[in-house]
């Protein structure tokens, strides 16, 4: 082996090996193997639910609502979710952003036609409602068109969101029964208010 080759042979091989390994790795995404970055909450995303009825509606409403609230607060949806999952007091800004987010979610779902008519939810809502059994039977006997004419889903949801004490609700996230009780009470009251308002409009 010549003197020149003795000097450069091994360095050239090392250079080829190192550049080759780094080149192949970078070409296959080396340096980009990082955790998923949270999406921009201000860009609307398609929200679906595996559940039907009230559960599915609630899930979609909450998912869109958190997106809207995170957008208002200037944080990611994930950061807000993790923050809300922690125990402790909520700021007025957070409560307002969340309420505003849920109300915006109702508007968005109404616009894209994904809000179900009231008649599709009435059976499930009556199961959870604290009403007299006779009254429940009467309501169940009503034709769907009558129910849909009397009760508008978006109106009930907006009233229920306004009715909800979000601060108390967020403080009791771990207690599922307490959570259900608060939401049912707010929804029942919202239905009553919505019906009264409709009656007032008729006269």
């Amino acid at each position: 082996m010549t003197g020149g080759w003795r000097m450069v042979g091994l360095p050239v091989l090392a250079l080829v090996l190192v550049c080759g390994v780094l080149g192949v790795q970078v070409a296959h995404g080396g340096g980009e193997f990082e955790p998923l970055r949270p999406a921009d909450p201000c860009v609307a995303r398609t929200v679906t639910s595996q559940a039907g009825g009230l559960d599915g509606l609630t899930e979609r409403l909450v998912l869109i609502g958190i997106d809207e609230a995170a957008c208002t607060l200037g944080v990611s949806r994930e950061a807000l979710t993790l923050e809300l999952a922690q125990p402790g007091p909520r700021t007025d800004e957070e409560i307002e952003a969340l309420r505003g987010g849920l109300l915006s979610a109702v508007g968005r779902m109404q616009e894209d036609g994904s809000l179900p008519p009231a008649s599709a939810l009435v059976d499930e809502a009556l199961d959870n409602a604290d009403l007299d059994d006779f009254l429940k039977s009467v309501i169940r006997a009503l034709p769907a068109s009558v129910i849909d004419a009397a009760v508008k889903t978006d109106d009930v949801l907006v009233r229920a969101i306004d009715e909800l004490d979000l601060r108390t609700l967020l403080a009791n996230l771990d207690d599922q029964d307490d959570l259900d009780e608060q939401v049912n009470a707010a929804v029942t009251q919202a239905v009553k208010d919505s019906l009264l308002a409709r009656l007032r409009d008729l006269f």
Partner: peptide, 28 residues
């Protein structure tokens, strides 16, 4: 290749640096 000891050590250092940089840039 029969390099001089200095070249051999220098190449060794370069290979270790390259290997560590490659470990920092794993694609998966």
């Amino acid at each position: 290749f029969g390099p001089t000891p200095e070249v051999e050590v220098a190449v060794g250092c370069f290979l270790i640096a390259g290997g560590l940089a490659a470990l920092a840039l794993l694609p998966s």
